[in-house]
C-alpha cells in the first residue's frame, strides 16, 4: 500500500472531515487503489507540455466598476443556521 492510514487522516483534516475508525480502512484502501490507478499518467512524457486550466481559451474578461444593488439583508440571512442582530452567528473561534 502506498497510502497509509495516517496519510488518509491528514487529507481528511485538510478536507475538514473526520473519518470514523470503522471506516478508516476502507477510505484508505480506496484512496490507495485510486492513486495506483492514476499511476498510468507517469508514463506520459509531459516535460515540454504546458498545463491546461481552462477548457477553452478566453482572456481579459472584466466588469465595469459600477455599483449594482446588493441583497436585502433579510434575504442574505434567510438561510443562516444561526443569526443575531443582522449578523451570522458562529461558535467560539480558537485558531487564527
Amino acid at each position: 500500500m502506498k497510502v497509509s492510514k495516517k496519510d488518509m487522516e491528514n487529507v481528511a483534516v485538510l478536507s475538514r472531515l473526520s473519518i470514523p475508525e470503522a471506516e478508516a480502512a476502507q477510505y484508505t484502501s480506496q484512496l490507495d487503489a485510486f492513486l495506483a490507478y492514476v499511476e498510468n499518467l507517469k508514463s506520459v512524457p509531459t516535460d515540454s507540455v504546458k498545463p491546461t486550466t481552462y477548457a477553452l481559451p478566453v482572456q481579459n474578461v472584466f466588469r465595469e466598476d459600477v455599483v449594482k444593488p446588493s441583497l436585502e439583508r433579510e434575504a442574505a440571512l434567510a438561510n443562516a443556521p444561526l443569526r443575531e442582530d443582522g449578523y451570522f452567528k458562529v461558535p467560539r473561534i480558537l485558531e487564527e
Partner: peptide, 24 residues
C-alpha cells in the same frame, strides 16, 4: 478605492450596516 468589490457589484463604501453590502 473602487466603487465596487473585486468580483461583484456590491458597494465598497465604509460604515454600512452589517451584511447590507452583500450579494450571492
Amino acid at each position: 478605492k473602487t466603487n465596487t468589490k473585486i468580483f461583484c457589484g456590491c458597494a465598497t463604501s465604509f460604515g454600512a450596516e452589517q451584511n447590507t453590502h452583500v450579494c450571492p
